[in-house]
Nucleic acid binder design. Structure first.
Lengths: 237, 237
DNA sequence: AATATTATTATGTATGACATAATAAAGGTA
DNA sequence: TACCTTTATTATGTCATACATAATAATATT
């Protein structure tokens, strides 16, 4: 409430640096629909003249775009627009230790959403080889006595295979990106309540559904399989 | 095959610049678990001495970290570690015009995954006010005759509200990030087959389920609601 | 005409200088 | 002593210049 009062009466001062501003200009330039992959952007010197800032500032801004994968620069040739790897960038900042608890929890929730929602793509694209692979993974499931030791690896193997089967590389990359967070959340004690050892639908059960059931069956089965996680999530304040 | 042959026999030369290397060092430094939000990182001059490069290079690398929201720097005080906004960074590179067709299609698929998978969180967190809002939105649905004109806005209003109800801000941000892509894919002709006007489960039907049904009902309902999109996706080569 | 050599050009790196803002230190006044 | 003002000090922010490097274009050589 106070904040709004302030915002209503004062315009918030622009604390951004020159580099920030130039970066904004350049990103806007790229998002101008006339430009597409392979097109070249103005030379540093031209930008210096056009924008009225030093080459240092221009280069720092360009350096940022390079890091995002928006441009690539070659000596003598200048810089050209490239198609960025969306998740490559994010991976660099995906550090569980510096994300807020709330964000960590939300990312964990995201996993549950993805794995339940992916059913139709699994059924559409799964092959006999995939089934064989899944059965192989399931057969290597650690015995209950040691499950708490090896289940993380096993979980990753099984659920990772599912992402792979979807044939959606973006989804797969997204999962790889979130993996460290899943791992961290498991170990962090953020989800206080200990997971019950009982699983409602086992990995084997899920494979059976993939082989003989329907997407709707799978969604229900996966929801049950993840019940422990849901319980712990819903238990949070 | 050729590529693999090359990779097997030659080590690929390191084309990265000094800035790339220093950036890598710094990211690694931040991911060192001992460091957490609020901790300060070495001064530019110290980095210059430690790494044996010029201040120009160090500053460019730091500038990249700033853009990612990994650090913030204050004059005299130096730079401190901050908690990044994961999707803020991605938003800058989310330009449908320079993403590959394959990636665009995959992002569109991601939407379908999310909206079917979010059911449990909807039911857990929906309030009476949300139901009222949804009914309001549904009541403003454009008549069938004009549906093709206004349905994008209406679709965004309805489905956007669903993301909001999940209470998962990360999910919501993710959707906002993907919105331009959804829009672009709709208009791009990437999904050639015209959507059939018939919807299997209407927005109103979904609201009914949210009010009186179960998460399983909703997943099935939403899957049906999105049938047209699935058909078009599965039709692609 | 094909090849070798030499400019030319734009990016990559290094250095020095000064501006700016935040903090710390020093000094002065009650 | 306590408080306030003024003055260093420090680390980042910006600018200017010089040179290195690699890719291309232009020229010369055979």
């Amino acid at each position: 409430m106070e904040k709004e009062l302030i915002n209503d009466n004062f315009k918030l001062v622009d604390t951004s640096s020159l580099v920030d501003k130039v970066e904004g200009n350049l990103v806007a330039l790229l998002q101008n629909r006339k430009l597409k992959v392979g097109d070249s952007i103005p030379k540093e010197i031209d930008l210096v003249e056009t924008l009225g800032v030093s080459r240092t500032v221009v280069r720092e801004a360009l350096s940022r775009l390079k890091m995002m994968g928006l441009i690539e620069s070659k000596k003598k040739k200048g810089a050209v627009i490239t198609s960025p790897d969306l998740f490559g960038i994010m991976a660099k900042s995906m550090n569980p230790h510096i994300l807020s608890q709330e964000t960590l929890k939300e990312i964990f929730e995201l996993r549950l959403v993805l794995e339940i929602g992916m059913a139709d793509f699994l059924f559409k694209r799964i092959t006999q080889d995939d089934i064989t692979d899944l059965k192989e993974i399931v057969s290597n499931e650690p015995p209950a006595a040691q499950y708490h030791l090896f289940n993380i690896d096993h979980e990753i193997a099984f659920h990772g295979k599912l992402y792979e089967i979807t044939g959606n590389d973006t989804l797969k990359k997204f999962q790889r990106l979130l993996l460290p967070v899943f791992d961290y959340v498991h170990k962090s004690g953020l989800l206080k309540k200990q997971a019950q050892l009982k699983t409602f639908v086992s990995h084997k059960g899920l494979v059976d559904i993939l082989e003989n059931g329907t997407p709707d069956d799978f969604r229900t089965g996966m929801r049950n399989h993840l019940e422990n996680h849901f319980v712990r999530i819903f238990d949070l304040p």
